[in-house]
Simulated scan of single mutants.
Amino acid sequence: MQIVQRPATATTGLATDSSASANPLDGSGVAGAADGAAAATGAAPSAPLRRGLSNWDQPLQNDISGAQQAVDFLEQSAAQLRALKTDLSAKLAARQLRDGQAEQRVRQFADTWRTRREASGGTLDARLNFASGEPSSQRFSVRGMTLQNLRNGARETLAVAVGSGAQGLRSVHLSPGLSDEEIVGRFDSALAPAGVRVAAGQDGELVFSTSEDSWPAVRDVFAVQGSGVRFPTGQLNRLKTEAEAPVVMPEGWGTADIEGMRATLQQVTQALAHVEAALAKVRLELASAAQRADSAMPQLETAGVEDLADRFAGIAQEPGYQSLLALTSALVGINRERVVSLLGLR
C-alpha cells in the first residue's frame, strides 16, 4: 500500500457530537485526537485524515476476518492433534497403558472440534471446506434419489417437501429423455428457494446441501409425492436423509488398551493431515484477501501527520481532561475483530 501526500484541506475544529467517536479504522478517531491536541495547545487543528477506511470494501473485510478465524481454529486443532499423536506414539512404543493423559487430550480436542462453527465464524464445514462470506453447509443424500431411478419412467411431477412450512413444498417435473445434467438442474432450481442446492455425486446419486443452521429442519422433513411412476402417489412419503460424515470424528477415539490406542493413532494422523491441508488452503485465501485489500485500500491523506503525532504524544504525557479526551478519541470503537482483521494484513 502506497501513502501519498495530497494538498491539506480545511477543518472545522473539534467535533462535539457522536461523530467524534467514530470507528478508529476510518481515521476519525485519530482525527478527533488530533483536534483535541490542537485545542489543548491553542494551535490550529491539523488537516484531518480522509475517512479512507470507511469506504473499504465491507465484504473484503469479512473475507479477511473469516479467514483469520478459520486459521486460528485450524492452528489450535493442529497443535492439539500433534500433541495427541506424540503422546500416543510414546505410549505405544513403551507399551504403556492408560494413565489419563491421552484421554484428557482426546477430550480436549473433542471439545475444540465441537466449537468448529462458532470458532471459525461459520466458514468451515464438517469436511473442513472453507467458504468465505457464506454459512457453512451440510451435504447429505436422500434414499431413492439416484440418477438411474429418476432417469427412467414416464412423465411425472414430484412434489418435494423440504423443512417445515408451505414455502418448503416444491415441484420437480421429470420426463423421458432428460439428461443427467437436466435432472440435476431441475432439482437444484426447484429446491434452491427452500435453501437446498443439488449436485451430482460420484456414484450417480443426487448430493444435496443446505446450511448447517437449516440442516436439522431439512433432516427431519424431506418427503416426496409422485404419481406412482418413480414415487408413490397419495400423501407425501417421508424419505431417509443421510448426512455426509465429518472428516474428523473424535467421539470414536479410544485409549483404553493398546489396540484402541493404535487405531486412534491412525485416525489422529489422518485427522492431522486433513487439518493441515485445510490450513494451507485457508492461509492462501487469507493471503489473497490481504493482497486484494492492499491494492484496494484508499490512499490516506498524510498532510500534517508528523505534526499530529507529535502533538498527540505531548498531550498524552500530560495528566488532565485534554489527555483523557485525546486518548479516548483514538481508542473508541477498537475491538478484537477489527484488530484481528488488520493483523491479517501483515
Rank of each mutant, 00 (worst) to 15 (best):
L178Q: 15
L97D: 12
A161R: 13
R143C: 00
E103L: 14
V162Q: 07
D180V: 05
Q167D: 11
L178P: 06
R116D: 05
A90G: 12
V142E: 01
K85R: 15
M145G: 02
E134C: 02
E181V: 14
Q138V: 09
A90H: 03
A154S: 09
R170P: 07
A126C: 05
L88G: 11
T86R: 11
R117W: 00
L88N: 10
F187I: 02
G201P: 12
G177L: 07
S189P: 00
F140R: 14
A192G: 09
D87V: 05
E134Y: 04
A126Y: 07
L174Y: 12
A131K: 14
V106R: 15
A161N: 00
R117N: 09
G185R: 12
D87F: 02
S189W: 01
Q148G: 08
A199M: 10
A154I: 03
R151K: 15
A190T: 05
A102V: 11
S189Y: 08
L191F: 10
L150D: 02
L191C: 09
N152A: 08
E134N: 09
Q148Y: 01
S136I: 04
R107Q: 15
R117Q: 10
L150T: 00
E181C: 01
R186D: 03
T123D: 01
S141H: 00
R151I: 00
L150W: 01
G165C: 15
P135E: 09
Q101V: 15
S175V: 03
A159M: 13
D99T: 13
D99R: 11
Q148R: 05
S175N: 03
L124V: 11
S132H: 02
S136V: 07
A161G: 03
R95P: 06
D125C: 11
L169W: 00
D125Q: 01
G168E: 06
N129M: 07
L92V: 10
I183R: 09
A119L: 07
L124N: 04
F187T: 03
Q96C: 01
N129Y: 01
G168Y: 09
G163S: 04
L169A: 10
S175C: 00
F109W: 11
G195K: 03
V198Y: 11
T157C: 07
E182H: 02
A94M: 13
T157R: 14
E118C: 04
R139D: 06
W113N: 11
R143H: 00
L88E: 03
T123Q: 12
L178E: 12
D87R: 12
L169H: 00
M145W: 03
R95G: 14
G195N: 03
Q101T: 15
R98N: 14
G100Q: 08
Q138W: 01
L191Q: 12
L124F: 03
R116T: 03
